[in-house]
């Protein structure tokens, strides 16, 4: 009698596990940290999907793409969240991603959006952040920054999307003159970190005067910590725009669930979590609007951005220039 019961139990157990499918989303480290959007997103989505949402932090954005390429078709990821327009062309080329099939989303982005594969979830401007009590006078452009003796931390453009963004920013602002700017900046750079979290942590610990982050970063200190001492600088050249995107993995076995997640991602629930956890502008402004405090943030004079199609070629050339300038 015992044996059939065990067998029945096993069958039940396997049925139970089959009933709660698992959706694995690769994302960057700060997204899954306990103060990031991860916990709230997971709770909200699991409440509606009857599934197990697993957010896996795999380094920073650019390293994530390398990771997916490395794993290829065998990747466990169903959705990859956290690439940006500088990487979407390279990501498309891998053939590992599928179209999202959503063309009726009313985005509130500073740019037109028509990518059939990558769906935006937030955006922001890259900017250098400083502490107004420790460094009250800050340079307003790259040339002044290079001439100053301020210590800055930046991220590696090969592993991190802000690091890559800075590379594109300098290139967009200075073109062929970019290597000269980088040579001037070389002695200001304390170190180049693997990801955004490391760099921002170093800045907060006092290991540098300025850190490459976003114009929205001071909102975190203002809203979450009631600390108004952090500020971002809008540069004379304009600031480079980042649109953060996600896409469904082509080989996923949870295709419907992945679609459901992407739809959820541009919904009001997800979008209203973003401003005060990921500290970026939501891709679709929620009904309640932006949280108070966001109106105090620096507004760049102009938004710089390479079209996704050009970004790949620009990246490779700019990366060589960057490596050369900084390795002298």
């Amino acid at each position: 009698m015992k044996f059939p019961m065990i067998a029945a139990g096993l069958a039940m157990a396997s049925m139970a596990s089959a009933e709660t499918p698992e959706l694995i989303v690769y994302t960057y480290d700060s997204f899954v940290s306990e103060w990031g959007p991860g916990p709230a997103v997971e709770k909200a989505f699991e409440a509606q999907c009857e599934c197990d949402l697993k957010l896996v932090g795999v380094g920073d954005g650019a390293a994530m793409l390398a990771r997916v390429r490395l794993e290829g078709a065998r990747t466990e990821a169903d959705v990859v969240l956290g690439l940006d327009t500088n990487l979407t062309a390279a990501a498309t080329e891998t053939g590992l991603f599928a179209n999202h099939g959503m063309d009726d989303v009313a985005f509130d982005l500073p740019v037109e959006w028509s990518d059939p594969m990558f769906l935006p979830y937030d955006w922001g401007y890259f900017a250098f952040v400083h502490d107004t009590t420790k460094t009250p006078d800050v340079p307003q452009n790259f040339k002044a920054l290079a001439d100053s003796d301020l210590q800055i931390v930046i991220q590696d453009p090969r592993s991190s999307t802000p690091g890559l963004g800075l590379l594109m920013w300098v290139k967009a602002a200075y073109g062929d003159e970019a290597p000269v700017i980088w040579e001037g900046l070389a002695d200001n750079i304390v170190t180049v970190t693997k990801g955004w979290s490391e760099a921002y942590g170093m800045f907060l610990e006092g290991e540098a005067d300025m850190v490459l982050s976003y114009t929205t970063s001071p909102a975190y200190h203002l809203i979450a910590e009631e600390d108004a001492t952090k500020a971002a600088v809008a540069f004379d050249e304009g600031n480079y725009l980042q649109v953060e995107v996600a896409a469904k993995v082509a080989h996923t076995e949870e295709s419907d669930l992945a679609d459901e997640f992407l739809t959820f991602m541009v919904s009001d629930t997800f979008q209203s979590i973003i401003p005060t956890t990921n500290w970026m502008y939501p891709a679709v402004t929620p009904e309640t609007g932006l949280p108070s405090g966001f109106e105090t943030l620096a507004n760049p004079s102009s938004a710089l951005l390479f079209p996704a199609g050009d970004a790949m070629a620009v990246r490779d050339a700019a990366l060589d220039e960057w490596l050369n300038a900084l390795s002298q």
Partner: peptide, 16 residues
């Protein structure tokens, strides 16, 4: 980049 060993460069080529 100016303080990268060959071992670290291998890691970067592979991981990044």
């Amino acid at each position: 980049p100016k303080a990268t060993t060959v071992e670290l460069a291998i890691y970067q080529a592979f991981r990044f």
